[in-house]
Design a protein around this nucleic acid. Structure first.
Lengths: 138, 138
DNA sequence: CCTTTAATTCGGAATCATTCCGATTACTTT
DNA sequence: AAAGTAATCGGAATGATTCCGAATTAAAGG
């Protein structure tokens, strides 16, 4: 998702165009990988020293709820990245060292044969973890 | 996994047979679903009032590392359950209301066609979230 | 059964990420 | 430019988890 597409969503829901949100969106657009909340804080403070934790966390949560950011969790740490363009549903390999991702174009839900008709399905998660070519040792 | 199988693992690694560990194992054996750390604390304090948080968290982490417990995360909460008998690899539907699970006998890794030969795969996660028949409304 | 020794637990303080809150600032519209 | 409201700030509060030194307990050997 581009910065402009993110702003389209934000403005549609009457969120204001602020300097801090622009800084956050530019950071995620540039990073193009999963980053921890701590990394966001460090990076964003470079552009706006003195930005409040509250502002960062509040916007991260809101971006995540609006689908601008994807959120996951690894070893107890929250990770965020710009959500992919929503053209077709897919999943990711995630590098545990750098947070980089690679698309996995299949969705396991298509292969589930168990009868879940009595169940209400709210969501699912499929992620592969490991080391990308750049981060693997040797 | 049974309580006895859990003790086999613990004793193999020279962990001692203590009252608190027995209480924890019995609780998980009985619960047979994902429970939060808070639920563990409340339940375990019934059997041993005055048990230290430290003891609970230390053993949860150790059980999890040894593969006695499965650990996942839902809405920022850590969830634990007794690991299934390790006879054949599978995944789970998890009820977001009660933590109950249902086995999904497929593994999406079998269907991944993307070339990951340059990647080192350390693990994967496939979970389906929703409401089980008992917890769905209406 | 008694002693020894090291693991385990206890209790409470410390940590750390995250959230809350009242006061201030900055968008957007008029 | 002024008004109205959302957003931010700064610092305090929260809450789960971990740390730490002292006390206790399980396992092994005599």
């Amino acid at each position: 998702m581009s910065i402009d597409e993110a702003w389209d969503i934000l403005l549609k829901y009457d969120y204001k165009r602020t300097k801090n949100r622009e800084i956050l969106l530019r950071f995620f657009d540039d990073a193009d990988r999963y980053v921890t909340a701590m990394e966001v804080r460090v990076a964003v403070e470079r552009d706006n020293p003195g930005i409040s934790f509250d502002t960062i966390y509040r916007n991260l949560a809101m971006f995540s709820k609006l689908g601008i950011l994807d959120e996951t969790e690894l070893n107890g740490e929250r990770l965020f990245r710009m959500q992919c363009a929503t053209d077709h549903h897919h999943h990711h390999f995630i590098c545990t060292a750098c947070g980089g991702t690679k698309s996995i174009p299949i969705c396991p839900m298509d292969s589930v044969t168990v009868n879940l008709s009595e169940y209400v399905i709210e969501g699912h998660k499929f992620e592969i973890y490991g080391r990308c070519p750049k981060c693997k040792v040797g």
